[in-house]
């Protein structure tokens, strides 16, 4: 119980810092919205083209904005060496990891909440026909990005070229997650939606997240101690 209470405390601290500075969310939303505007000019608007391209647009936006959030959120812990303060505290290190990951997932979700309606509006995409399934896959995607990203962002905290290394290391690991997200979304926005295929990919994503969560909990402590 203490583990989750302390994780919640750390997550709330991250969100409180972000609510005060609005630095990460503002950058993510601006960048996400910019991508939507670019898509709306760069891609044809006929129904068939939109249905086939909007899943990719959504997940590219989530991937790019998620990376921005990861880099900056962990940079903040480096500025006054506050990560050291968290690791020095008697809080289980798993709580530190979980707290950071939950806060990160909340940031990614906040952007998805803005970008998804914008895509639906600008491209007239039928993204909300299966809103429940779409919400579930976006939540699972955000959790996956947050879990996998938090491990590597924390590990690279003291590496000078971390801004370059983070996406290089992160994206290959996130490919299955983006494939699952895109396939689910594509199955839901077809003219004849294939909910069976969507649920197959949602289950895949759930298992992928769970596997990385277990792995991350296992390796986090050994990765962050020098």
């Amino acid at each position: 119980m203490s583990l989750f209470r302390q994780a919640a405390r750390i997550a709330w601290k991250d969100l409180r810092v972000e609510l005060r500075s609005k630095e990460i969310v503002a950058t993510m939303i601006f960048f996400g919205a910019l991508l939507v505007v670019i898509y709306s000019f760069a891609f044809p608007h006929d129904d068939k083209a939109v249905r086939s391209s909007v899943p990719g647009m959504l997940w590219v936006a989530i991937a790019f904005t998620g990376t921005i959030a990861l880099g900056r959120a962990f940079d903040r812990e480096r500025e006054n060496d506050t990560m050291r303060a968290l690791l020095l505290s008697p809080v289980p290190r798993l709580a530190v990891f979980l707290g950071k990951a939950v806060a990160m997932a909340a940031l990614v979700l906040s952007v998805a909440v803005i970008v998804t309606p914008l895509l639906a509006l600008f491209l007239d995409a039928p993204l909300f026909d299966y809103a429940g399934e779409l919400a579930l896959v976006v939540v699972l995607g955000a959790l996956g990005i947050a879990v996998i990203g938090s491990v590597f962002a924390a590990t690279l905290l003291k590496v000078r070229s971390r801004d370059v290394l983070l996406p290089v290391i992160l994206y290959p690991l996130l490919v299955p997650l983006f494939v699952a997200g895109t396939k689910t979304t594509a199955a839901l926005v077809q003219v004849h939606p294939n909910t069976e295929a969507a649920w197959y990919w949602i289950r895949f994503l759930g298992i992928y997240d769970a596997a990385f969560l277990v792995l991350s909990l296992w390796v986090f402590e050994s990765l962050v101690i020098e």
Binding site: V17, R20, N80, R84, L88
Partner: peptide
């Protein structure tokens, strides 16, 4: 049981 004062403040600048 450990208290530490390091080169940096170990405190959050926004708080």
């Amino acid at each position: 049981e450990i208290g530490m004062l390091a080169h940096q403040s170990l405190c959050y600048a926004e708080l």
